[in-house]
Nucleic acid binder design. Structure first.
Lengths: 206, 206
DNA sequence: CGGAGGTAAGTGAATGGTCACTTACTTCTC
DNA sequence: GAGAAGTAAGTGACCATTCACTTACCTCCG
C-alpha cells in the first residue's frame, strides 16, 4: 500500500531522529529546535545539516518512525489469520495504548501539531498515516460484520473511528494526568468491553 | 465548583479574543502571533497591550471561552433532571461533536498545544477544564450505574474517558479529512450505539 | 460657555531574543 | 590528500514587548 522508499538511514541519522523524538515526547513538535537537537546529540546546530538537508526533512523522518511504531505493527496484527477478528481488534487497540504509554502520547502530539502545520508535505504525510491506520481498522470491522447478519449497527468507518477514540482519549489524559493505575484499568477492563460492544462476532446471536 | 472570577470583558477585549479564536481555528495556537491578531482586529500590535497585559493573559482568556463553550453547557445538561441518564450522556457527547464541527476541532487543538506548553498557568488551566469535563461524565456514569446492579462493567472513569474519545477521534479526523456526510453518520448512528453500549440503564436487564 | 487637565486607545519605531540556515574554516580517517 | 564530519561565527526573518508620542473624548471649574 504505502510504498517504502527505503529510508536507508545512516547510524548518525538514526541517532539524530531518536534524540529528536525524545524532544517531541517531552514537549511536542513546537519544542523541537535545531539548537536543542544539537544539544541532545552532542554537537552543534550546523552539524545537523551534514545529515539532513532541512529541518523539514528531519521532521518528515519522524513520520517514518511513527509509521513504523504505529501503522506497521497493526497491519501485521490485522493480517494474522490465527486470531479471530475480535482478538485482532483488541490486540490493535492494546498495541496503540501501549505505545501511547511508552511514548508519552507521542502519536497524538505529532498528529495534532502536524495537522495545523503550514508545510503541505508534513500535512500530507500525516494524512496518509492516519488514513492507513483507519483503513486497517475499518477493513477488520467489515470483515467482522460480514461474518454476522447484523446490519443495523453503525457503519464500519464510524466503528473504526470509535476504536481510535479510546487510545486517543487515553493519550490526552496521560498528558495531563498520567496515572499508571488508571491506565492499567483502562487496558484491562475497558478495551475488552469496547471491542465486545461492537456487536461484530458470534456469541451474542442467541 | 470552578469559581468564576468574573472576566467582565470590555467589548474590545471580547473582539480581540474572538479574532484570536479565529486564528486558532485556522492553524492552532502556534499560528497565533501578536502581528496576526492586530491584523485581524485592524490595529497595530502595540494596541493589543492596551487591552491585555501580555499575550499569555490573552491566551488564558481563550481558555475561559473554551470553558464557556464546552464545560458549562455539559454541566447544564448533566443537571437536567427531566432527562434520563442515558439521554443526558447522549446529549453531552452530541454537544461536544457539534462544537467540534462548528469550531473546526478547536477543543482538541487547544488541548494538545496547551498540554505541551511551557507556561504553567496555561497548563494548569487546561488541566482544570479537562478535569471538570471528565468529572461531569464520570458523575453521570456513576449515577447510571447506581440505578442498575451491573458491577462487572468497566469503572466509571474508564467509561467517561471512552465517551470523551468519540468526539476526540472525530475532531482529529475532521482536521485531516473533513467530511460532513461521514460526520452526520457518526452523530446519528454511532453516538446512540456508544451510549447504549455502556450497559448502564434498565431495558437490557432481561 | 470655554478652556485646562485627565484618560483611554491608538501609532511607528525601536528592543533583545530566538529561529532555521549558511559560510568559511578545521580535523580526522582511509 | 581528499572527502566526510565537525566547528565558530555569522545571516536575515520573525517573535513578544516597550517606548515616546498623538488623538479624541470626558469632566470640572470660573
Amino acid at each position: 500500500m504505502t510504498i517504502r522508499t527505503g529510508p536507508a538511514r545512516t547510524p548518525r541519522q538514526v541517532q539524530i531522529l531518536e534524540k529528536t523524538l525524545e524532544l517531541v515526547r517531552e514537549g511536542g513538535l513546537a519544542h523541537v529546535t535545531t539548537k536543542r537537537i544539537a544539544e541532545r546529540v552532542g554537537f552543534t546546530e550546523a552539524a545537523i545539516y551534514r545529515h539532513f538537508p532541512t529541518k523539514q526533512a528531519l521532521i518528515l523522518g519522524l513520520m517514518d518512525l511513527l509509521e513504523d511504531m504505529l501503522v506497521e505493527p497493526i497491519r501485521a496484527i490485522a493480517g494474522d489469520g490465527s486470531l479471530s477478528v475480535r482478538q485482532r481488534l483488541e490486540a490493535i487497540v492494546r498495541h496503540h495504548t501501549t505505545l501511547v504509554r511508552e511514548q508519552n502520547s507521542l502519536p497524538i502530539l505529532l498528529l495534532a501539531e502536524a495537522s495545523v502545520s503550514e508545510d503541505p508535505a508534513l500535512l500530507g504525510r500525516m494524512r496518509s498515516i492516519f488514513h492507513d491506520y483507519l483503513s486497517v481498522l475499518e477493513g477488520l470491522v467489515r470483515e467482522g460484520q460480514a461474518q454476522d447478519e447484523i446490519v443495523q449497527a453503525p457503519e464500519a468507518d464510524c466503528l473504526a473511528l470509535l476504536l481510535l477514540g479510546a487510545p486517543a482519549a487515553l493519550a490526552i489524559r496521560h498528558r495531563l494526568f498520567p496515572d499508571a493505575r488508571a491506565e492499567d484499568r483502562f487496558e484491562h477492563s475497558l478495551i475488552p468491553h469496547l471491542v465486545s460492544s461492537l456487536d461484530l462476532n458470534p456469541g451474542r446471536k442467541a
